[in-house]
Design a protein around this nucleic acid. Structure first.
Length: 217
DNA sequence: TGCCAGGCCCTCTTTAGGGCCTT
């Protein structure tokens, strides 16, 4: 599978364990480095948004009151993404919110997360910092006027992961950067990036060869 | 009243501490 679902949440705070809830979600589906679809919705969890976060995101309590219920949005999201693997910028944040929101509708996540923040730290070790907006500037990625909204940030993260994959392909002369390779790379010690890419490539070739052999039987 | 995230990653480290990143 070459599709990736790039996801971004806006929330009332930093921790679902402290009662914070999602206020908006967006997913951008990319396939072979092309955007092929997207989903975005505000959602009403009945939780007030702190003034600081309202200023940060532009999402107000009034907007949320008119939004569909969280359960309805999260069900739609589950149907939209299916089992396509996820990418997010600082995936630890988005993964804990999607797990918390999906658990409320008794849906369990089956796919893994790759993290564009961890990957950027490894691939671009000399950058000053790794905030999404700054990475976009460093890499000359076109940005939307409005940041800190789910769709704008998901679209920017999609451009970032496409750039990361292109840079990996160019640097290591490889045809394909799988989600599995991204997941391996994001955990690799910085001193062993080359080794991990080569090992992942060998595994991919082994799998492809075995597939070719078995389909020709 | 005061506190309230958590995983990653670097360094003046590893028996720790603090900044980064997400809202």
């Amino acid at each position: 599978m070459s599709k990736i679902a790039v996801i971004d949440f806006e929330t009332t705070g930093l921790s679902p364990a402290n009662g914070d809830r999602a206020t908006e979600v967006a997913v951008v589906i990319i396939d072979e480095n092309r955007v092929i679809g997207s989903y975005q919705s505000l959602m009403n969890a009945g939780k007030r948004i702190p003034a600081f976060v309202q200023r940060l995101t532009g999402i107000t309590d009034a907007m949320i009151r008119q939004a569909p219920p969280s359960s309805e949005v999260m069900q739609e999201l589950a149907e939209f993404v299916g089992d396509i693997p996820f990418v997010a910028h600082n995936a630890a944040f988005d993964s804990k919110f999607i797990d918390a929101e999906w658990s409320r509708i008794h849906h369990q996540r089956s796919q893994t997360f790759a993290c564009s923040l961890l990957l950027s730290r490894r691939l671009y070790p000399n950058f000053h910092n790794y905030k999404l907006g700054n990475l976009a500037r460093y890499l000359n990625l076109p940005t939307a006027e409005r940041s800190h909204r789910a769709l704008a940030d998901a679209e920017l993260t999609a451009k970032l992961i496409i750039q990361i994959k292109a840079d990996l392909q160019a640097k290591y002369a490889i045809d394909q950067v799988s989600h599995e390779m991204l997941c391996l790379l994001q955990k690799a010690p910085k001193s062993r990036i080359d080794e991990v890419v080569q090992k992942a490539q060998r595994n991919l070739r082994f799998c492809n060869n075995r597939y070719d052999h078995e389909t020709m039987k």
